[in-house]
Design a protein around this nucleic acid. Structure first.
Lengths: 335, 335
DNA sequence: GTCTCAGGTCGAAACGTTTCGATTACGATA
DNA sequence: TATCGTAATCGAAACGTTTCGACCTGAGAC
């Protein structure tokens, strides 16, 4: 690989002149510029990125941390982030964490390989994030609400109003006359799931129905998990006329067991959360709470860009959800 | 940020010793090691990635180039690549190409920011790839067949047997008695689509049915595109009893117009290609040709790793597809 | 008592840029 | 003619590592 020095030698100028030609063309005379450019061409010179990063102390790269790239929710979100990133001319590193776990993935932050990060992995703690973020390394957390008294000025968040979304779901089921709901929650510690549950319960409480009478079963946000959870509810012979799942994937699973030919002919409404693309295709189509994924991704990148531009204490943002009524809470599994 | 020099000063040793402690611990005495480690800890020292890359001339990073991260096919594929990558402890840069177009995306290769690349973008030409790949920068092309006489020793490919898949689709439709198929192709230049078409036609030719009698309409591999294509076929009043689309997304679109309430009650079988997740959920469920996406992704990363390890002329690989029969070629749209 | 040798440590060069301040040449100004 | 300003170019330092060869020290071999 040709270096800038080779170019300089070939063009008969100093290294600094070559660099000037490349970055501040107006500062060097016409003929010299021509000679240099010609040499660049002849030698196929390409500036070395690492060297520049080292000198400049900027990478123009951001990282996205996620648990797993698969799953429609995350993949739709990350697609939006990718679009925003490349629109800004930045490079995007995606880091799952199959093997490495903690150590390995935040390495990118530690080694200063990125100028900023977007965090989608729900298992990376706020403490860790606060520790790693800093004046030259802002972080925005996507899909989680920033705990109010968080001290770092370089950490912010964008999320959806999960509590409000849960409430919307509850109201809708109530309006349709479903008074014995069950709730399929996410993993026990999941903030997201807890907020959705809280909003959901609030709706029922307002209607005079005690949440303590709502059956709750925990699962893992996946479709097979939803199947298991629904099976468990059935096995417990819970009396219910509707089930609200903390995300669409689990709702899909639940619906599968409800519409399975062998299952008893109960009529149970199903409601999800996220509005992934699948929700429109499955039969019956799935009523759900819509998250503006595109906007979430774009906004996250937007906040990050501002923080990277030096702005400090960028305020977190909360987007609102909307109710999407489809067949699963209307027609009751017409198969 | 603390540098290695700060650590050295604090521990009262030379810079080189610190580096030794970090990388070849056995070469330095017990007590010194302890002092150094303690300083590392106290100063929160983290080695700077760019500096190391510069010195070492390795980045442990690979790039994936794609047209667009959205779309289930690519996102499933890239999820597999991501898993394989992080299992190997490498970092993954994904680069779509919204704005930059050519110039911008291959920048990663030019600037030596990656040690290897996987190319998913069908619009990057072989010539370009051959030009950029090299002894220290192997490239594997995913989802395209390597043209036989390609000269670069650092370029290889993994793809699925598209011709064979198309043939499978044709055979299946024939066995079911569909003798008037139409074909919804990809964009005019698409290699992939051409292979699938060729295999499909071969099956019909073998059965004594001339492909010239098969209606072909081009589209763009998207669902809306499929809708348009199907509309066009209907408008042309093509006599057909089956339609084979070059990918599942377009098949989904086609099926939508066929099952639309307002459409005339024709009975047309639909067959896709890819076996994306949606194919199992849509009603009627979509018969299709299965691509082993997971294996494709893993294998691509595998070949790349071998090439990065110095192996030259890694032979390209072709995986086989399998037929997946579902409702769309069996029951004919029972609403 | 000298010679070897190995273990432990160090200094300095190198990786390829960017950028700051200095130097030169030369026409314009007083 | 002496002075100044400006445009063009350059040299050298700095970014933070890794690594090679050299150096020192003390212990064991003869």
């Amino acid at each position: 690989m040709a270096t800038i020095r080779d170019v300089a030698r070939m063009a008969g100028v100093s290294v600094s002149t070559v660099s000037l030609v490349l970055h501040q063309p107006h500062r060097v005379s016409e003929p010299t510029t021509a000679r240099v450019l010609q040499a660049v061409d002849a030698l196929r010179y390409r500036p070395n990125g690492a060297a520049r990063d080292l000198r400049i102390r900027k990478t123009h790269t951001i990282a996205v941390f996620l648990r797993d790239l698969s799953g429609p929710f995350y993949s739709e979100l990350i697609a939006a982030v990718e679009r925003a990133t490349s629109a800004l001319g930045l490079t995007l590193i995606v880091s799952g964490r199959s093997t490495d776990h903690r150590q390995g993935s935040l390495r990118l932050l530690r080694e200063g390989r990125v100028d900023g990060a977007i965090v989608l992995d729900p298992e990376i703690s706020w403490a860790e994030l606060a520790a790693y973020s800093g004046p030259h390394l802002p972080v925005v957390v996507l899909n989680r609400m920033l705990p109010a008294p968080l001290e770092s000025a370089y950490l912010t968040a964008v999320a959806v109003d999960n509590e409000g979304g849960g409430y919307l779901a509850g109201r809708h089921l109530l309006e349709r006359g479903f008074v014995h709901p069950a709730f399929i929650a996410g993993p026990v510690g999941s903030e997201t799931s807890q907020w959705r549950q809280q909003g959901f319960f609030r709706a029922y409480e307002e209607a005079g129905i005690s949440p303590t009478r709502v059956a709750v079963v925990h699962s893992d946000f996946t479709e097979p998990g939803g199947i298991q959870a629904m099976d468990a509810l059935m096995a417990r012979r819970v009396a219910m006329d509707a089930v609200f799942a903390a995300n669409d994937e689990m709702a899909l699973g639940a619906m599968q067991v409800l519409t399975a030919p062998k299952s008893p002919p109960v009529r149970v409404a199903v409601m999800g959360f996220d509005d992934i693309r699948l929700a429109r295709y499955v039969r019956p189509t799935l009523s759900t709470i819509h998250q503006p994924m595109d906007e979430l991704g774009t906004l996250a990148m937007d906040l990050l860009a501002r923080a990277m531009g030096g702005e400090t204490r960028v305020p977190p943002r909360v987007l609102t959800t909307t109710l999407v009524v489809r067949e699963s809470t209307t027609l009751l599994h017409p198969t």
